[in-house]
Design a protein around this nucleic acid. Sequence first.
DNA 1: CTGTTAGCGCTTTCAG
DNA 2: CTGAAAGCGCTAACAG
Lengths: 324, 324
Amino acid sequence: MPKVTLYDIARICGVNASTVSRALRNDARLKTETIERIQSVAEKKGYRPNLAARYLKRGKAEIIWFIVPTLGASVDWKSAEFATQHAHDKGYDLAITVHHGDQKVFDRAAERMMQGLSAGAIINRRDIRDLSALDPLRKRNFPIIFIDVPPERSYGEGLVVTTDNEAAGRELVRRCIDAGARQFMLLFRRGVNAVERERFTGAARELRERGVTWVNGITKGDGLDWEALDERVALLGSSQEAVLTFAIPHADALRRKHCTIGCFDDWLGEARPAERVIVAEQDYETIADTAVDRLANLIDQTDGSDHPLARIPVSDYLTRKSYF
Amino acid sequence: MPKVTLYDIARICGVNASTVSRALRNDARLKTETIERIQSVAEKKGYRPNLAARYLKRGKAEIIWFIVPTLGASVDWKSAEFATQHAHDKGYDLAITVHHGDQKVFDRAAERMMQGLSAGAIINRRDIRDLSALDPLRKRNFPIIFIDVPPERSYGEGLVVTTDNEAAGRELVRRCIDAGARQFMLLFRRGVNAVERERFTGAARELRERGVTWVNGITKGDGLDWEALDERVALLGSSQEAVLTFAIPHADALRRKHCTIGCFDDWLGEARPAERVIVAEQDYETIADTAVDRLANLIDQTDGSDHPLARIPVSDYLTRKSYF
DNA sequence: CTGTTAGCGCTTTCAG
DNA sequence: CTGAAAGCGCTAACAG
């Protein structure tokens, strides 16, 4: 089947292409009858607008790109799914793209944003060190919202939507204490990003204020010293003890312990890792909706005013509101 | 910063726009010196090609769309991540989009495929009953590959890339028996799609051939009768028994049993659901790569020959080769 | 080796 | 209420 264009429809209807263009948008200036006639012909002929042509003409696109490091972490896939819905409601399509923490892939995605097919982007820059690929985007005032992990540079504060991570750290401590924990080990890679740092700060403060004792995980550069950690973790054993940690991919060290584990967003370890796992989940829906709203404002220039940094309160724990 | 076009670069370099176009493609016909000069100016001025214009002119796009029901199931997110890499290697960008099992959202995505921004699509139609939105795509010979769940209609066999699900069903039975199971309950929603059906068939045949006894889960229409099931599951209790099942979102019925659970792709239940969980994972990487390869062939028309249905062998179990 | 030219399909002002 | 016309930015055939 050959492609059908506006001109084909115009010819068949005996009108001008611009009339067809208007009819398909339900332009109020046209006679209802004309609109109906044209629309039914377009329907019958299987006409589809060519978005490349539309974007070219208009000089702007209607796709929001959602750029995340992976889809295996709930913070990424759940916020992506919520953002999809919310973007649709606002008349945008949403395309998800994965950078895998790989600088080259990230830079490639950033490039694509400037090539006329993107109205704006929502970016989780976790695991990406170098954001210089975004400089040209900023120069062009390309609409970007950062979620979860902030950019760590002088981007506008209002361009960041993130959880109140310090509150989340405090809250997770409280939950573990409610579950019986009286002694803590904190495992955070504080050098890695702002989120980790803030969670640590919150947890540590809460513990100090409550006079609960804790030890630090053994770090090595930005990360953890896994070997030394194995040894120390091996000493744990009672449900009186809790380990507070980020989502650990290789959580072998924590397997089959009788302690309580508190972690953020989701537990990626073994199915039966410990006596009790307490998960503090971010409020993905609010994060996603807020990000899309703010991005839409940037795109429409609706709103030049400076927004404050969006600090989304930590949600109820263990909620699952997504597809599953 | 205003946008920079080919013409701007052409003017600055004192050449014609088409020369610039060629230079940026490293067209062998141009003098190396000219190419270098033009490229350095383009670089300096921050030139970016406008893909909307390119796609319009060429009449085709270079984005592959990966359409899945959700990102919470490993079959979806892992194959999406592998497909991203492989598509990049083949010179395509890959955009992921989620239909959530929602017919309207799926239809909308199908519409978008025909609007000039998509070179082809890889689709997992799980949870979508009505594929009629794809009819116009077929009429235009739009390149589509189905993965995981086949379309259940007369689409070309070679357009489907899926696991050998019957073999997977057999293999999972073997694993459970190796783990000590001597009695089985099979929980499948056979009416739901071909994958479920084939897994059931494989498991049932393997059990029959081995003379192992099994009972069926209690079904109700296409699904399971959860209440009746709860009661029956409550009777389970020994590690001699195994429950073979699809990935169950709400697996409360199976909590804290001493039986063995065998399931496909990933376990979505509680962190400590049973004495032993055995997961049979599809070979996402091969599925994704095969799908991208075949799609690329369709796009290039490289290959009019009929491919056979791609039946990917079931992979090693419990492998995790992705980002985490 | 490089320039000219004609459009890809759509939108949008301006005319009438 | 509808038509005419210009042009978005790029590419590719053809010309030289």
